[in-house]
Structures are given as C-alpha cells and as structure tokens.
Nucleic acid binder design. Structure first.
Lengths: 352, 352
DNA sequence: AGCCAAATGAGACACGTGCATCAGAAATTT
DNA sequence: AAATTTCTGATGCACGTGTCTCATTTGGCT
C-alpha cells in the first residue's frame, strides 16, 4: 500500500548513496568521490553528469558517515578577558554546557583568560597559537591594532578566528554578537518612551569609550535621541575604567551638576558598579535606568525596580553560534545565516 | 613536545572508543554494548565497572558512528492551520529552510494543512497517523477536547507529538512556543510605560477568546495593567473571528463608545486586519498600539509608526526547536533546555 | 601506428557503533 | 554432583563515506 506522506514524500526511507549516484551518473564511485570532494582531474562534462544525477536523485551527503570516515575533530578556543564580572561568568558557564553537548560531535572547547586591558599580552598569546594547538579561536578583546594584527596573522597560519561579542573591524569577518549600534538605538527608544517628563538630561555611563562596542552603542543611542526625543539632552559619556572609586566620583559629580536627570543609560557589560552607585545616589525612582546584559545582578535589579529595562544577547546562543561558525569555517561550509544572527533581546521586569 | 592546550586538554585528539572502554572495564565489547544500550542480562556490578570506566575515560558515544550504524531516519510532520496569514507563511518558509539543513541528518519534514476552525477534522486527520507514516508530529491547533484526545491517542500509538505555538494542556508536555502569559505581561508593561496620558482606556482585540493562547495573553496583560497601571482601564476583548467585516464593525463600535482610548493591544497572530482598521479609524497617533508576531506587515507598520511595538517569537527558532525536540523524543534523549526555551522578543521601530 | 598523459574504474580498507549469533563460563538450583 | 539458568566473550557483518593504490581506458599528439 502506498503511504500518503505529505509533500513529495519518502516512498522509500532510504536516501540515495554515493553508490546510487555513481550508477545514475554512469560513472564509478571513485569519480563520484572526486566530484563530491572537489578533487581535480575530472572532465568538465563528467562533473556535469554527476551534478545532474545529484539533482535528479536529490542526493544529500550523509554527514554521519562522512564525519566518521574523516575522523575529524575540532579544537576550539575561547579567548576571554580575565575579569570576575557576571556576564563573563555566564559566558563561561555556557561554554561548559556546550562542551558536553558538542563532545558527541568530536568538538573540544577551551577557555583561555587574558588580561583584557593589555593588548600586547593578548597579541603575544595569540602569536603562540598555531594549527598544531587549535583549529579555531573566538576572541573577545578590545579593538587595537596589536590585536587586530595578531588575528590576521593567526588566520594566515591557518587558524580560523572570529571576533566574539567585541567587534574588530576586520575585512570579511562577521562578528559573533549583536549589532551594537542597533542596541543603542533600542535603548534610546525605550528611554525616550519611558520618560514622561517634558524635559531632562540623560546620563550615559561606559567602562571605557576606547572600546568600539561602547562607541557604537553611543552612536546609535544619540542617533535616536536627537531625532525622536529632542526634549531630552544626552550628557557626555562617563568612563568608569571598571574602578568603583572612580565610578562613584564621576557619577556623583555628574549628578550634582545636573539636577534634572531623567534617565541613565549604562552601556558597559558590567552594570553592577554604576547601577549600585545609582541606587544609592538619591535620584528619584522616576528616573529611567537602562543597562546591558542579563546577569544575576541585572535580573535582580529589574525585579527591584532599580533598572527599568535590560538590553541583552542570549549568551548561550552566542557560545553555540561561535562554535558552529568556527566549525563551518574549518569545514569551509556556509552556515544558515538566519540561525546565526544574534538577536537583541529586551528584558523587562515582566518577562524574565 | 607536550602541547599546552588549555583546560585538561586533548593530549591525544582521539576520544576513547567502546573498545577502549571494554579494555578499561575488563569486559568485552559485547558487554559494553549491553550496558550502553540498556540491554538486560548484565550483573549490576558489571554495569558498575563499565560506568566507572566511562567516567574515568570520559567516554562519549560517537554520534556519527551510532547514527550510521542504526541507519536511523526520521519523518516529522508539522500540522498547521490552513490560512493565508503571514505569520504562518513565515513558519512554512522556515520549515522549508530547515528541511535542507536537517536533510544531512536524515530528517524529513512535511507539512499538512488542516482547517483550523474544525477540531473534528483535525482529530480525524491525526487519527490516520501512525508509526508507519511518521515518527513525530508538531501540532498547531486550538485546544479542544477532540484535539487533545487525538494527541493522546497518537502518542499511545507510538508517535511523538508536541504542541506547537498553540498550547494544549497535556500532562508531561512542553509547548514549543513562548509563555503567552509572560507575553501578555510584557505587552502590558510596554503599554503602560509608553502611554503618557494620566488616564485612558485600552482596546484589546483578539481573533477568538476560545483559544488558550489569547486567554493566557489577556490574563498576563490584565495582571500587570491592574497592578501597575491602575489609571488605565482595559476594555473587554473584541473578537474578530478572522473576518474583516466583523472586525471593522466591532472595532468601530468600541471606538465610538470610548472616546478616551489611549492604547490598543492586538493579541491575535494575524495583526493585519485589526491594525489596518485602526490606522483608518481616525484615532490620534499618540494612541499606543502593540501587536504580536513578526511578519512583513507588522515590520512595515512599525516603521510607519502605526505600531509602537511588536511582541514575537523567532519563527526559525521555533521550527528548529520543534525538530530537535521531536528527534530527542524519538531517541529518548534529553535536550538542552536552555537551548530549547523560546524567548519573547520585543521589536521596536529601531531594532528590526 | 605508436606513445604519452589525462581520465576513469575497480577494489580494498578504515572509521566507531549497533546488532545478532553462538559458545563458553559462572552462578544458582535441584 | 548434576542440571539449569544467568551472564559474558568472541566474532562477524552492516552502515555510507573518505582515501588509497593500481589497472585500464580514452583521447590527443607526433
């Protein structure tokens, strides 16, 4: 009896194999192999015969068999700043989780911590890596000429490298991370719409404006604020350099100097220090505060009402996406773009 | 020379095989196989020996080899309502995309369209499915006793079944889709914060309040509106039944009867009809409009300013997640929960 | 015709696991 | 002690592809 599986269905559950391909194309399995794996020494018209057979048979290479035969395995390395911030903790946790999942596909992952403030040491470390140690590297580091060059040289040595979360202006590379300019625009839209006052100033806090990420966020933020909410004035970015003391000082000065603060935008990945200072600052609860990245702290601050919104990227997705992309690079495959695009997420107290 | 791969690294790139396991545990490969695949007739202490070896060697079953050996393939079916709405178009598109990706893993996907308004026909169709036709089914259908029972019977026949997007109150099942109550809460938060008027009414539009999804969204919406924005009153849900004529009538009546409308919440997946009516209603631009699901229409409405926010779920992720979960069910594996959780996305004019 | 290079065929083995069969060992019962 | 029953070992084939080697055919050239 004919099965009525919808949509041009599997009459037979067996997919065609290379053997079937060979028969259909009227060539040998050796030639099919030559075509499939792009080896040379095959006449163009023979190639075409095989291609046609692939088309008519709907042949799809059995990945399980191919991976098994190749005995391929992958060593991927995440190079991350050595800081104790909660966002990175999440990332590290997800790398650990992913390790277990990807182990079944012969993928190893490692983490190497570097001093995020020292581009030279990062570059030096990257210089020690070669194809003998690792197949691919996902790098989260500030954009400096040293780091950028080190990445380029890494690639020249045959190691796949991807900027991770922090962007690097490299040709032909896609960042594994969100569009920071769009994130800044999103922050501005929420800020503008959440603030009910007819006028006021917006405090903007960053860890350092040296970083391309902060710059892009600021750009996007200002773009929307100026165009759509001209009654709100954005103040120059305050830089904390990750130091609580300095953060407290500059923020206190800014708050004292601007009595009509209506909103605060914390651009840095580690929101904790600025937000805690903010909570103790005596600013009224009506001041709208927006920060970045989902961490235990930001979640709690959302619940407590200290923060009104958090803009974030799914850290698990980030990690998995980086691994998939590195593997695709290693195999010279293309990835499904729509799957690998990292979306901007908005967290509110009501959708944690 | 010793390689210095970080983190308890691969000295040897070769993972242990079942052969290594057998040697380490002091048993034969046959026994290892018995333990790994849960066959009976093995002494508990022998099982333990193998388990210990797995632990100490860090053995991970090579999925490629296992899949190859099993020659397993999967036939999964999406049962979707037969409507022309854009949201479903997106879903169908992503099923097509996913088909190509998953083909390499011996996964077939099919779509079957059913009349979404006729629970009996849906149930009848599901009754025709058995393990001979299909291994798993993702079902998007309204929650009615007929459908629910049909799903239960489907499972009894050995076909894995998952509710897809539309929830069904089934025991021991996770919906592939968002938490609609949380989505309603999110809509309320945005609505409340976007509306600057000191008082006003909120129009709520649904396709039908028969559907559990709309009910849950409404529940979450009211929960937050009442608790946090008591100055805004929510009107009873209007039901369009998907009919433009009826939609125009009930909406016009509601607008005429409530001069102080400050916001509109369109709960249904197909936002087009209500939003277009709204745009022509003569309501002022300051009225905040929020709808669901990313479609070409909602994107355009966001850009045009007709909509202020759209709450959505990533349709590609939905489809891939359903497939992964069905496969995991078929293999009796567990999935990585954090990967399979569908997040609520918020779209604003600035982050499309 | 003869020669050479290019193109193709034929065949074998490997990868790691699943699955089955049969013999033999060990433990338990009679 | 013998007869069962329970457990374990040895072994072989299969899955589909990648990767070799070596033989053979084809086509172009002088």
């Amino acid at each position: 009896m004919k099965k009525t599986y919808p949509r041009g269905a599997p009459d037979t559950l067996l997919r065609p194999t290379t053997k079937d391909l060979a028969r259909a194309a009227g060539v040998s399995r050796a030639t099919v192999d030559r075509v499939l794996n792009g080896r040379e020494g095959v006449k163009p018209e023979t190639v075409q015969k095989v291609m046609d057979a692939i088309e008519t048979l709907g042949f799809v290479r059995n990945l399980s068999a191919a991976n098994l035969a190749k005995g391929r395995s992958y060593r991927f390395l995440f190079v991350l700043p050595q800081t104790g911030d909660q966002f990175l903790d999440e990332i590290r946790r997800h790398i650990g989780e992913a390790e277990a999942v990807f182990a079944a596909e012969r993928i190893w992952t490692g983490i190497h911590a570097v001093d995020g403030n020292d581009p030279y040491r990062i570059a030096d470390y990257l210089a020690t890596l070669g194809p003998a140690e690792v197949d691919g590297v996902a790098i989260m580091a500030p954009e400096t000429p040293q780091v950028r060059d080190a990445i380029v040289r890494l690639r020249e040595r045959g190691v796949r490298a991807l900027p991770f979360i922090s962007n690097q202006a490299l040709s032909g590379t896609d960042l594994v991370g969100i569009d920071n300019r769009a994130a800044g625009r999103t922050a501005a839209t929420l800020m503008g719409r959440f603030i009910h006052a007819g006028t006021g100033r917006i405090l903007v806090v960053a860890e350092s404006m040296q970083s391309r990420d902060s710059l892009e966020r600021r750009l996007g933020f200002d773009e929307v604020m100026h165009a759509q909410f001209p009654h709100l004035a954005t103040l120059p970015s305050l830089e904390t350099y990750g130091a609580p003391g300095r953060a407290a000082r500059v923020m206190a000065a800014a708050i004292a100097g601007n009595p009509d603060i209506a909103g605060v935008y914390v651009m840095s990945a580690e929101a904790r220090i600025p937000v805690e200072i903010l909570a103790r600052s005596g600013l009224p609860g009506s001041v709208v505060a927006i920060a970045h990245e989902r961490t235990p702290f930001t979640m709690q601050a959302l619940r407590a009402g200290t923060l009104d919104a958090v803009i974030t990227q799914d850290s698990g997705h980030l990690v998995r996406s980086a691994i998939r992309r590195l593997r695709a690079l290693a195999d010279r495959l293309s990835t499904l773009d729509s799957q690998e695009k990292i979306r901007i997420e908005i967290l509110l107290p009501t959708n944690l």
